[in-house]
Design a binder for these strands. Structure first.
Lengths: 225, 225
DNA sequence: ATTAACAAATGATACAAATCACATTTTATG
DNA sequence: CATAAAATGTGATTTGTATCATTTGTTAAT
């Protein structure tokens, strides 16, 4: 579903877009289209041409590689730009993006995005800040994934969904056991085993994909590097 | 050793610095100091205040975490900015940087760096390009480290030094076996074992830290995800 | 409702890599 | 140059997690 949008009146602006002038916002609106994606929909695909900057206005999205042993590189919640690195100087997407929850995404012409960087210092500055934070998070993830065992990695992932995505002790996991495994690099079977064990120990309560965190401190202890 | 420098006449400019005007280069020279580091010297340390952007003009540097089980996040060669993410909006360094080869590093006042981003569109643009490439590389590394076994990871590391750092089939490894292990997340013992095996198979030739790549294709095959 | 198709749980087994223990070589130090 | 200290090599053993095999539960389709 495609919507005509007015960026000027949009209330979910990125920190960068907040820096745009009324004229620039108008220009953005004319070079930008919002598309609604349902849970599971592919937003862009590894190997295809990348012609737009994608702005995740609202929703939850995973960035992932393709292939049988797909790996989830990142899970992120709006508002946030998706995959600037894969679009900016690259012609081809280096990874795919798929909606984990119903999402609203604005596709912005790369050229207009680049022109904003050149014309608006604050805009460029905010984009740089976002890229910097993204790299720091990625380092964090790298350390966690290599220093922790399956318990620590799973605990880390659960805390991530609790704190960063749903901001609630109780949430519906948007991933299958297999996908959760691809996120933290363990097998589907091990995910099952560890989840039941955490449930038995009353650290979490599981009912299918519904998860309740009962003892966040225990999870923090487990995921401590 | 501290040198007075003239950024105007510097011939090892970053792509971003190439975009600066003569006046800006002059200003940069006045707000920037070049320091020479010897192999092994600490450039900045995790947990300390970050007050400068560090530009690795020449040399090879590792970014790494501290602690007994230190992890090498990234190894990079000049010319390149080091750790913009850890300096930009952050007050505290999230990781350390240590010279792996004698290196020349320019410490640039964060404020002047930020002012260039605001005043010079091309400068900001180039910084964004560098950050984007950095993130893509990091994703690559993540995939390699989790999808490959010890042979693949070690092969990948050897090709990295050959292609990206020394651009030669023969090079002096700037890391101990233990550090190499910290780079690709395997133990010192396994590094030894795999290296001798690769030597036995005539894929590489080792003599202490001196390494010669005899069969790069075999390494490529091993490191293919 | 009933069957099919898929996702998840669970137990048994296999295996890669870590750990442990010690020998050997290399590098640093008085 | 001798000695200590550190780095590296290598075999034996242990261990965490993947893999395999099967059962159980859940969702979708007729």
């Amino acid at each position: 579903m495609i919507s005509n949008i007015s960026c000027s009146t949009c209330i979910i602006k990125s920190s960068a877009a907040k820096a745009l002038s009324p004229e620039q916002l108008n220009e953005l609106g004319n070079n930008c289209v919002q598309i609604d994606f349902k849970k599971g929909d592919v937003i862009f695909k590894e190997g295809t041409f990348s012609v737009n900057i994608t702005y995740l206005r609202e929703g939850v999205v995973k960035l992932h590689t393709e292939g049988k042993a797909s790996q989830i590189l990142k899970i992120t919640k709006g508002p946030k730009y998706l995959g600037i690195p894969t679009t900016f100087e690259e012609k081809i997407n280096h990874y795919s993006a798929t909606a984990l929850e119903d999402s609203h995404i604005c596709f912005i012409h790369t050229n207009i995005f680049k022109s904003f960087i050149e014309e608006n210092k604050k805009f460029a500055y905010e984009i740089i800040v976002e890229l910097c934070n993204s790299e720091l998070e990625l380092f964090q993830k790298c350390v966690n994934r290599t220093k922790n065992n399956v318990y620590g990695r799973l605990a880390h992932a659960l805390l991530f969904f609790q704190e960063k995505i749903y901001e609630s002790n109780s949430f519906h996991l948007p991933l299958s056991r297999e996908e959760l495994g691809n996120f933290i690099n363990i097998t589907r079977e091990s995910v099952s085993r560890v989840l039941t064990e955490l449930d038995t120990d009353k650290i979490i309560k599981i009912k299918g994909k519904q998860i309740e965190i009962l003892n966040a401190d225990a999870l923090r202890k487990l995921s401590a590097v």
